[in-house]
Computed example of a mutant assay.
Amino acid sequence: MVDKPNQKELNRSREGRVKERTPTVSRFECDEAQGEWCDFTLEYDSNIPKVLMLSIVQEAVRKSLIQQIPGIRSCVYVADEKVQDAVTGEEVKRAVIHTDGVNLEAMQKYGEFINPNTIKTNDIAAVLRVYGVEAARQSIILELGGVFDGHGISVDRRHLNLIGDYMTRNGTFTPFNRNGLKGNVSPFTKMSFETTLSFLKDALLDGDWDDLTTPSGRIVMGRLGKIGTGAFDVLTRLHVKNGKNQVG
């Protein structure tokens, strides 16, 4: 059985490596367990007229790497931030870390510090890759709701659910813009959204046709859409007189 090296042995080992790489360091100590402090002594020749410690520290900081997570460029810690509780729906104050960049796989390794069940990101592609299409759909709905709420606009969540369903109907997520509508079979639907002339030109060159089954296509032609009250026809029975149908 081999005993683990104690704090002093680790300090001596690191001190030897530091002195070997940096001759001007005469003494070096650090917190090997928590990494909270570092104490060292620099010795220079007496003939040196001036030592600018600021430039030395800046150069050392640029070369030092404490810890790095791929995809995360920077982060900001907020001790008390108002967030919505996922269970109760109420606003509560909790410690939050805001990051520039996303790495959901790496965050799962820090379960002792970060609750993986409360991670939120606006990177829909990352959510789809790690958690699946249902999680991506929910992220889309939350992001859309946050955009409208930020401007004080109240939108029924059923409308946002419909957008989320449309964007994830193929098992992935489709942009809700003219590029996402390129796969639509209805030329009138594409023309009613954006870049009307471009879609019209493509429809003419490709020989596309529209059977007017989509709501947007029927609205363009001034016809009632086959949805809601327009999804069915109302027929009335003709009056019968003397055993014969009366017409007119």
Rank of each mutant, 00 (worst) to 15 (best):
M1V: 10
D3L: 08
K4F: 04
Q7V: 10
E9L: 10
L10P: 00
N11S: 07
R14A: 06
K19R: 14
K19H: 06
E20L: 06
T22G: 00
T24M: 07
C30H: 13
D31E: 05
W37Q: 03
C38N: 04
D39C: 09
T41L: 05
L42T: 12
S46Y: 07
N47Q: 04
N47W: 09
P49K: 11
V51Y: 10
L52C: 04
M53I: 11
I56M: 10
E59F: 08
E59S: 09
A60G: 09
R62M: 05
K63W: 03
I66F: 09
Q67A: 11
Q68H: 11
I69P: 01
P70R: 11
P70W: 02
G71K: 13
R73L: 03
C75Y: 14
V76G: 04
V76K: 12
Y77V: 12
V78E: 05
A79T: 08
E81N: 10
V87C: 02
E91R: 14
V92H: 07
A95F: 05
A95D: 04
A95T: 12
D100S: 10
G101C: 07
G101Q: 02
V102Y: 08
V102L: 06
M107E: 01
Q108K: 15
I114T: 08
P116M: 04
P116H: 09
T118D: 08
A125W: 06
V127E: 00
V127N: 03
L128V: 02
L128W: 04
L128R: 00
V130W: 04
G132C: 02
V133D: 02
Q138T: 14
S139C: 13
I140E: 01
E143H: 14
L144N: 02
G145H: 08
F148T: 15
D149N: 15
G150L: 07
S154N: 07
L160I: 11
I163W: 05
G164P: 01
D165Q: 14
M167W: 01
T168N: 01
N170G: 10
N170S: 14
G171R: 06
T172Y: 11
T172L: 06
P175R: 13
F176M: 05
N179M: 10
G180C: 01
N184Y: 09
V185D: 12
F188C: 02
F188S: 00
E194G: 02
L197K: 15
L200I: 09
D202S: 14
G207Y: 02
G207T: 02
D210Y: 00
D210R: 06
L212F: 13
G217W: 00
K226C: 13
G228P: 10
F232Y: 15
D233S: 14
D233Q: 15
L235S: 13
V240N: 15
K244V: 08
N245I: 15
Q246I: 14
Q246L: 12
